[in-house]
Design a protein around this nucleic acid. Structure first.
Lengths: 226, 226
DNA sequence: CCGGATCCGTAACGATACTG
DNA sequence: CAGTATCGTTACGGATCCGG
């Protein structure tokens, strides 16, 4: 049976034919913090039916957005990870994420599940990669009850849920402050001086972090040449 | 009855709670080329049920993304238009649109409906507004069988389906070439020298257009400071 | 325990008819 | 023109079951 499609000559419609159904983009978000197992995904996406998760994974694989990988023994499990096309898709979501932070923060309900890697996967995209040359630091982000790890090197910026045993510095804050900063309502420097964000660890690593991260997130995203 | 929501503390989930359902983002796309009547929307969104269209319009109005406006006599009709928040949402879609052009162009089927304003609404966002100072030109874009109009002034860039009686220049091409350029596979200058894009009209207006429009669309969209 | 598949009740959607 | 009403179909949610 064919999937429901819009059948319009419009690249937005083409995108939505692939990622417009329920759970699909949250699945992509989940894989932004590294390869995940089926059960990990089912655990993070509370409310998704098991059969629907399996169906979405198959669709995304057919559409070359994710790929299955079989780990060798002793792990001997299968994980899902983003392809190159899938990673580009994830990057294309950043403005939509910032729009949500700016205009939809009132949607939050006490008790909603939260994971540090959800925010960190997008925050990592704000890092100026050109300013990273010759460095390689790993940061632990403590965001409320959960934490995730960001590794920034000249070759790549990666996020992992952790826990990791080695890291150079720790940044701690609460989920609400992350939203305020993402929404451009709060400058990072201001958040630090008021104590809403606290840092600890290697001073060089922290100095570098504030060099490569914008102090205030702009309201608009613009196309710039490479 | 409450709308289905993800109930997660994540700004992507918040965005998708509002715009993640079927037809919603195409409705936003439709309103990017100016206010539209109920019947216009129903005509452009082939396949949407009338009751569902009404429901989506009500939701988007509740969420402050669109607003209803009642035109005075003799028009005496009601139109829907984007709010400021809705316009920001539309701008946040650009990277997703370009991703679709880059990776999903094989989704096209012969006979799919096409409207020039679908592409033009997003293309208009690529214009460098800072380079527009003191100008005010209207361009007619003939894209295949359909056409739409782009007005670029220092104060604003707007798209209308037309027809308009006054315009300064005409740009003509086919929908496939628009996709190739959007995907970054083809430079605008190259498209013109090979005749895939033809131009006609006021030379000053055309010169200005190529000044404010990037010759080649970059692969990535990056956050830059205002 | 992991990675699903199967089944069934409910909610969302599509098509068309109808109304002020 | 701007919707509402109705009804059949598809998609989704939750639970259970099953082979490795």
């Amino acid at each position: 049976m064919a999937r429901r499609a819009y059948n319009q000559f419009c690249s937005l419609a083409w995108s939505l034919d692939v990622v417009g159904e329920r759970w699909t983009l949250l699945l992509v978000r989940e894989l932004m913090s590294g390869p995940k197992r089926y059960t990990d995904l089912a655990g993070a996406l509370d409310g998704i039916g098991s059969s629907l998760l399996a169906a979405r994974l198959r669709q995304l694989e057919d559409d070359d957005i994710i790929a299955q990988r079989h780990l060798p023994p002793p792990a001997a499990t299968t994980v899902y990870e983003l392809t190159t096309v899938g990673t580009e898709l994830a990057e294309a979501l950043l403005p939509l994420v910032l729009w949500g932070a700016r205009h939809r923060a009132d949607a939050q309900n006490p008790g909603d599940p939260y994971r540090a890697e959800w925010a960190l996967g997008f925050i990592a995209q704000l890092i100026d990669r050109d300013a990273l040359a010759e460095t390689d630091y790993t940061y632990r982000f403590r965001l409320g009850e959960t934490e995730a790890y960001l590794r920034a090197s000249s070759r790549e910026v990666t996020v992992r849920p952790g826990p990791l045993d080695r890291f150079d510095a720790t940044v701690a804050t609460d989920p609400g402050t992350v939203i305020d900063i993402s929404a451009g309502r709060l400058a990072l420097s201001e958040a630090i001086t008021t104590g809403r964000v606290t840092v600890d660890g290697d001073p060089d690593a922290l100095t570098k972090l504030f060099q490569v991260f914008p102090d205030r997130i702009p309201d608009r995203v613009r196309i710039t040449a490479e």
